[in-house]
């Protein structure tokens, strides 16, 4: 089995474990953490896809912005603004892809 395949499978398993751990942990953590955990999960999934060269230009840009948010200082207002902006951009991209079909 090639190294990249092993890493991808392992990282995918780790991501699932992270999401389930987070889901459980949130019962005992501040509710605000939920949004960041989801964002972090998206960032981790993008990392997995990146290692196998599966990111298109839209997702490459999104990954850069999400990484900056994940790695920056915690700022709820900024995070919320970024999330709002990303949802709008994603909606436009979904529409563009639907119309291209």
């Amino acid at each position: 089995m090639e190294r990249e395949t092993i890493n991808r499978q392992e990282e995918t398993f780790n991501l699932i474990a992270y999401m389930i751990s987070s889901a459980r942990g949130l019962y005992d953590e501040p509710p605000d953490y939920g949004s960041f955990r989801l964002l972090d999960a998206a960032g981790r999934l993008l990392e997995i896809l990146d290692t196998s060269g599966e990111l298109d230009p839209f997702l490459i840009q999104l990954k850069e912005e999400i990484d900056a948010e994940r790695e920056g200082s915690m700022d709820d207002a900024r995070q919320r603004q970024n999330l709002e902006r990303w949802v709008i951009e994603i909606a436009k991209e979904l529409r563009r892809r639907a119309e291209a079909d």
């Binding site: 949802v87 709008i88 994603i90 909606a91 436009k92 529409r95």
Partner: peptide
């Protein structure tokens, strides 16, 4: 997401 869905549906 209200605005996102509105954009998607045109």
């Amino acid at each position: 997401h209200t605005q996102g869905l509105a954009i998607f549906l045109g």
